[in-house]
């Protein structure tokens, strides 16, 4: 681990920019957006309004096109993604466990570099306490699935950068001049802060919920009634992977893939109109049980890492933390 001032962070971006397009939180007229940087100094420390999912699975993308009698598929390249939080990185690992054999996804994933920003302040909407906590540690429960290349912390105006992979160590090596080793006292302060934040994030318990999440729970219809079907909880969720595919005539024929939402009626409607999830509450149940029961039972992981993005993006204020506590109560 090395410690430095803001120059260390800027330096990191500069080093990465030599090999990647760097995606990081930056300011856009009063908003913080996770987007490609043009200049190393643009990176900010605030949590951006969008999740990192689109850099591996874009909102909409062309899978291939048919032109002049032949198929042509793009060969996308990944990004160096900075400033995403541990919960979001874990969610991307979930995403990978589903999408990992998709050639476009895989080609992005394999050529991406991840630098996670550990949380040294509690976040208002997250609930990662039971799901790994505010840093991606060596003994992280998600570790067997992968690790970010770097992790950085900020505390009292200082930046701490740590490498978790070989590639990460290489990059860190190039930054030696911009920082120094951390003192025992600094490390202690950092550990203290992380455990305080962790305590704070334990407001919602998740472990064991799969046993309580019943098929006929009243919560589904209660929340479905409030859902206006904007799709935002699915779109903003870094682990939701559902998509729709269509063919379009854009001069050449192109096959397009775009984010979809399980809360929409058409998502599960079949060709002749039959729909196993016709009612709104059926679809709400699917969203909740898929995340907290089915996925857990088949993979051992929840398909939710407590990032809180869905509740931030919900116009009706549907709060997943409330849904979970209700499942516990009854």
């Amino acid at each position: 681990m090395i410690v430095g001032g803001r120059e260390l962070l800027d330096g990191l971006v500069k080093v990465l920019m030599e090999r990647w397009t760097v995606v990081a939180p930056r300011e856009v007229e009063g908003n913080v957006v996770l987007a490609p940087l043009e200049d190393a100094g643009e990176i900010v420390l605030d949590r951006p309004l969008n999740s990192p999912k689109e850099y591996l699975l874009p909102q909409e993308e062309i899978l291939f096109e048919y032109r002049d009698g032949g198929f042509k598929a793009p060969e996308p390249r990944g990004y160096a993604i900075l400033g995403i939080r541990p919960c979001e990185f874990r969610a991307l690992l979930m995403l990978k466990s589903v999408m990992g054999e998709d050639p476009l996804f895989l080609s992005r994933w394999n050529s991406s570099f991840f630098a996670v920003q550990a949380c040294t302040e509690p976040c208002p909407s997250g609930f990662c306490g039971d799901l790994g906590g505010p840093e991606f540690s060596g003994i992280d429960p998600y570790r067997p699935l992968g690790a970010p290349d770097l992790q950085y912390y900020t505390l009292d105006g200082r930046v701490f950068v740590d490498a978790l992979t070989e590639r990460g160590k290489e990059v860190l090596g190039a930054l030696r001049d911009l920082g120094e080793g951390a003192t025992e006292e600094e490390l202690e302060r950092l550990r203290m802060r992380i455990s305080e934040v962790w305590e704070d994030m334990k407001r919602v318990r998740v472990v064991g919920i799969e046993e309580r999440a019943r098929w006929d729970h009243p919560a589904y219809s209660y929340f479905a009634e409030r859902c206006i079907q904007c799709g935002a909880c699915n779109f903003e969720c870094p682990s939701c992977f559902c998509f729709d595919i269509r063919d379009e005539d854009e001069g050449a024929w192109v096959r397009v893939r775009e984010w979809d939402s399980c809360l929409l009626e058409g998502f599960s409607k079949m060709a002749l109109g039959a729909n196993p999830r016709k009612r709104e509450e059926d679809r709400m149940r699917q969203r909740i049980l898929h995340k907290f029961k089915y996925f857990k039972e088949t993979t051992g992981f929840y398909m939710c890492t407590g990032c809180g993005r869905c509740l931030e993006a919900c116009p009706s204020g549907i709060d997943l933390r409330e849904v979970i506590s209700w499942l516990w109560r009854e």
Binding site: G30, N31, V32, L49, I228, Q229, C230, G231, A232, S261, L264, E312, A313, C314, P315
Partner: peptide, 13 residues
Amino acid sequence: ERSHPSNAGTLCI
């Protein structure tokens, strides 16, 4: 847009 007073980080479909 998060900072917009009318929609505060939300949109409809």
